[in-house]
Design a protein around this nucleic acid. Structure first.
Length: 421
RNA sequence: GUGAGCGUAGCUCAACUGGUCAGAGCAUCGGACUGUGGAUCCGAAGGUUGGGGGUUCGAGACCCCUCGCUCACCCCA
């Protein structure tokens, strides 16, 4: 290896982000409030492995989805198994519930999760290759009241964190009984549109015609205006489910907009789908998205238990949460000379044992330099420890904000600091 | 995967059409002030101008390739 190669630093992987100490408080706060909120609704945390058998996502997320077709981090391990870093969470949870027989517990079963997801996408604003999601899932509750409850819970979370400029979009994508007729009609109309649809949409006619509505090409938008909407084709059961869902949202006083063209790009959704979008993000404006997936459990070879859930993009959410950091109060021990340093080390141990945050200066520095450092670091107090102080067992405690200074024993220091916080 | 814009010190930016152009401010560290912070002044450190090739007497600037960043498309959280 040449000198040049040795020196070249190894950069972070494209599409990944370091969350630095200066940003971590915000993350921790959002995570804490989110967990607390979910727990209020009876959710409990579940953690599953970061990778799974590739097949799990192929089957769960769906063979026709972009996630499976082109965005998965798939690799072969030394045992020849095809593994994939999870691109989304729902299939993992469903797998775990079936495998561990969690469905034998009283239903509905409510679980939540937080952690990194991986998608090989081209990074842009609000989209990364490793990103974080908060995810909730409910199993075994057919009542549309639960659909409304989870939207209300998301709404409550947004309000708690003072997130504004958002909009709730809702739709129903029907079920296996009513969707085929709709798809057939939609395909027929799409085929009639012919050349007015772009090449991509031509393909979607066969694979997943619902997604033609997502297309942003102008001619496609024009053409799709005349296409039938799913909500006109719902079977009585789906129709009732959707109207009850909406009436419950009304009950909660949640503003929402029916968006018949809202299509989740995942194959497994049935009946209810929804999104919360923010006008303060860029093109990737969906903070949260989810829906019902009544067939997944059964399709995975488990019992016929319905499911519903949503995923929230933490990076996107955090970017619209207002936040002012509250500074922690701590004491900086300025030591002058070796004996003082030793005394300071003992004092720091004494203070920390009772929960006082301390920083101690180990390097020989002038008092001036140490004061300056304490100020820059944001210390609330500086404790000056020199030869005289060590002899007397009394130290100079200076409050940085006021500049007031007094002589204190270590017990007095402890008392002053604990009383101030 | 496609397209556009951009890559000069940790950060924000200079350097006319290629010719002392490798600089400034902030931040860092030190000193003036060797037991007292925030101000001021002085100083130090920090860059093979993202990387590689080419054109040229000469390239940070021009050309090609590559990597990265940003934004948009696609898609999604």
């Amino acid at each position: 290896m040449s000198e040049k190669q040795k020196k070249r630093l190894i950069p972070a992987i494209k599409g990944t982000k370091d969350i630095l100490p200066q940003d971590i408080r915000k993350w921790q706060k959002v995570e804490a409030v989110t967990k607390k909120t979910f727990e209020l609704y009876g959710y409990r945390e579940i953690r599953t492995p970061i990778f799974e058998a590739t097949e799990l996502f192929e089957k769960g997320t769906g063979q026709t989805t972009d996630i499976v077709i082109k965005e998965m981090y798939t690799f072969t391990d030394k045992g020849g198994r095809s593994l994939t870093l999870r691109p989304e969470y729902t299939p993992s949870v469903v797998r775990s519930i079936i495998e561990k027989r969690l469905y034998l517990q009283p239903q509905p079963l409510r679980v939540y999760f937080m952690g990194p997801m991986f998608r090989y996408d081209k990074p842009q604003k609000g989209r990364y290759r490793q990103f974080h999601q908060v995810d909730i899932e409910v199993f075994g509750e057919k009542d549309p009241a639960i659909d409304a409850e989870i939207v209300e819970m998301a709404d409550a979370l947004f309000k708690k964190l003072k997130v504004t400029d958002t909009e709730v979009l809702v739709n129903s994508v029907g079920c296996r009984r009513c969707r085929p007729a709709y798809h057939k009609e939609l395909r027929r109309k799409a085929e009639q549109a012919g050349e007015r649809l772009c090449a991509d949409c031509q393909k979607k006619i066969m694979t997943n015609p619902l997604r033609i509505f997502d297309c942003k090409v102008k001619t496609c938008r024009e053409a799709s205006k005349g296409f039938p909407e799913i909500t006109d084709y719902l079977c009585p059961e789906c129709e009732e489910h959707f109207s009850k869902f909406c009436s419950y949202l009304d009950l909660y006083g949640i503003d929402y907009r029916r968006e018949p063209r809202l299509v989740r790009g995942l194959d497994y959704y049935t009946k209810t789908t929804f999104e919360i979008v923010s006008s303060r993000l860029g093109a990737q404006d969906a903070i949260l998205g989810g829906g019902r997936y009544d067939d997944m459990m059964k399709d995975f070879g488990g019992p016929d238990i319905c499911g519903i859930g949503f995923a929230m993009g933490l990076e996107r959410f955090i970017s619209v949460v207002p936040f002012t950091e509250k500074k922690e109060k701590f004491i900086y021990l300025a030591c002058l000379g070796d004996r003082a340093k030793r005394a300071g080390m003992e004092l720091a141990r004494y203070l920390r044992r009772d929960g006082v945050e301390c920083l101690i200066e180990y390097k020989e520095r002038s008092l001036k330099s140490q004061m300056s450092r304490a100020d820059k670091l944001g210390a609330a107090w500086v404790l000056i420890i020199g030869e005289d102080e060590v002899k007397k067992g009394l130290y100079q405690l200076k409050e940085m904000a006021t500049g007031m200074q007094r002589e204190c024993s270590r017990e007095e220091i402890m008392k002053i600091i604990q009383e101030s916080s």
